[in-house]
Design a binder for these strands. Structure first.
Lengths: 95, 95
DNA sequence: TTGACATGCAAGTCGCAGCTTGCTTATCTC
DNA sequence: GAGATAAGCAAGCTGCGACTTGCATGTCAA
């Protein structure tokens, strides 16, 4: 339903990826705090949770349950495939 | 208003980039035809025009007027910056 | 077991992106 | 100039995505 491009379209989700790429294995609560601190994101816990679900669906975030907490990891692999779709940088057309 | 990630979120806009990266300097009408042929995109001329405006705003498409036609070029440079935001592939965390 | 903590689920609301419709502008040909 | 072609503009409609609200589930500590 949701593809990786749509997942990246939301600013909050990009901030989440920022935080997860800086510090892996964060819980939902930890992430909410860091989003507020670093990016001024005031989203509620549920909102962040839904964003994480989207990111997990498209493979940008991997998760692991530990007791009553859920840890989240960033996975940049899907980005490579997504952006390899078009030529980057040099396309000696008119330059 | 619109950033590059939001610009990439729409499937039709991605098809437009596909076509423009395959064949540069296309007009709006030419593009509409190719979108229909190659991707089954049935969007109207106005819809495609609006998509092109978005792509031009974020720098993924460059244009040049020639008389009563307007030619469009794909520019992949903004993709590079968008990519560099997160680590791709190897991030020696837990591997 | 009880209470507190961390997360999940589901329905409802609201705003905006994408599309259409109709008209207008600009350029070329005759 | 008149007509045809290519594109631009603006207002209105509609569906979907992001958020909230309320409650349910599951886990740990006492």
């Amino acid at each position: 339903m949701t593809d990786i491009y749509q997942a990246l379209a939301d600013p909050t989700r990009r901030f989440i990826l920022d935080e997860l790429s800086k510090r892996e294995g964060q819980t939902l609560f930890e992430l909410c705090g860091r989003l507020a601190m670093a990016h001024g994101v005031t989203s509620s816990r549920q909102a962040v949770s839904q964003h994480l679900a989207v990111l997990e669906t498209v493979g940008l975030v991997r998760t692991e349950r530990q007791g009553r907490t859920k840890l989240h990891w960033f996975d940049g692999a899907p980005l490579q495939a997504a952006l390899a779709r078009w030529p980057i940088g040099e396309n000696g057309g008119d330059a």
